[in-house]
Design a binder for these strands. Structure first.
Lengths: 228, 228
DNA sequence: GTTAATTTCAGAACGCGTTCGAAAAGTCGG
DNA sequence: CCGACTTTTCGAACGCGTTCTGAAATTAAC
């Protein structure tokens, strides 16, 4: 249980390592090698301490990753969002999308256990904007949860497909399993086979926003309809 | 590279283990202990062979899990789906939802790398139905991908939130991080704080279907609009 | 100045997924 | 019957995240 800003009440062995130092080193390693290759042991070696030392400054590896994500989230600027509720939802979601697209590994981490509960105030500010927009539009609180959840997974899914494609495409160039729908029998599943090429296509941002708009339109309309 | 149905051309040491045997034992362990506690070593011990033996019948652990999912997917019955495109999309998605709800760990596995590409023909049949419905409705192929992707993540997200809540609620009863939005400052993020209770609520199936219908309505309309 | 309390550090070890290399156990051509 | 050949099995080992235990280094109390 590391104290973040404890004013040093009693005493103890003076620390040679700080959480900020760990996070900085982790950021460096991730930028250099990718986040899949970040290991606790290598991170400790990079700083020059034993591996177990890190566990006095960070709860576990997942905690470390979420600290990094929150740091990043604080740098994401929220420009003035539109007043009109529906447009505010769309703008906030698109901002989340752009932030995740710029740092795709954050999206991969965020799909794991407990994902959103670990985000701090700053990243959650955009989530707040989405929910607030839905409620201002007239949705019930219950439905606002669905609005956000649907938007969230739509957005994260977009990023995941994109980064997965980039990795598989750049790595081994497609293994024998075939990328996505590569090995589908066109006679059994004609539509999916026809979609094989398009599935992993890197969608331009505009396409994402178009889909998002459709999604928001439908969800918000359903929300107020349920109220009346 | 294990041969699934090789008619025994040459020769070799006769196998004491079969892939079916491994899958059956894995199913038993998962049913008993949950899929998080399934390890290769314990699985091998259950069968009575060395751990490395399994790697001659299965590519790796993820492969094993996908084999199980495909086995399960083959048991999911597709009742006659409606002819009308929009209703067909909704019915197919709801069938996917129900199957995943009955076996939530499949949803957790499916969110990992490469998820859908590893599904076999039978589970993909429902995906085919979703895409076919969208195309019959008049969507462009490009848009049909978005229709499915959005539905997919909406559905999987639903299941994930549900199973995560069940696990955290049943396990340690909520740790100091707070379940989901428990520790949010109501002054900074009022709407999210108000949603704290509702977030992790187990949504009844009807609520899911309502949200799904809204989503499909919006997405399909957007798809044909883009065409004209 | 000595002792107790407290905090940080790190070596050893555990179980995990996975790989390597060698041994075992069959079939086949001669 | 006998050496190639092939396939399966398995012990040893690697790196991983993480925990345990104890040593090191400081301040507080007497």
């Amino acid at each position: 249980m590391p104290q973040v800003n404890a004013p040093r009440l009693k005493a103890g062995r003076p620390p040679t390592t700080s959480r900020a130092q760990i996070l900085a080193a982790a950021r460096g390693l991730i930028d250099r090698n990718g986040w899949e290759r970040l290991t606790i042991r290598k991170l400790a070696a990079e700083i020059g301490v034993g591996a177990t030392t890190l566990y006095h400054h960070v709860q576990d590896k997942e905690d470390l990753l979420f600290l990094l994500i929150n740091e990043y989230g604080e740098q994401v600027s929220h420009p003035g969002l539109p007043e009109e509720p529906q447009e505010r939802v769309i703008a906030a979601a698109a901002t989340i999308h752009d932030a995740l697209a710029a740092w795709p590994w954050a999206a991969e981490v965020l799909t794991t256990d407990g994902f959103i509960a670990r985000l701090g105030d700053s990243p959650l500010g955009l989530v707040e904007a989405v929910v607030a927009g839905a409620i201002d539009y007239g949705c019930t609180p219950d439905h606002a949860v669905y609005v956000f959840r649907s938007i969230w997974y739509y957005t994260v899914g977009e990023i995941l497909v994109r980064s997965h494609t980039a990795r598989r495409g750049g790595g081994d160039g497609g293994n024998h399993r075939g990328a996505f729908f590569g090995n589908i029998d066109p006679e059994k599943l004609p539509h999916l086979a026809a979609l094989g090429d398009r599935w992993a296509v890197l969608a331009p941002r505009d396409t994402y926003v178009d889909g998002l708009r459709a999604l928001v339109d439908g969800l918000l309309a359903q929300g107020v309809q349920a109220e009346s």
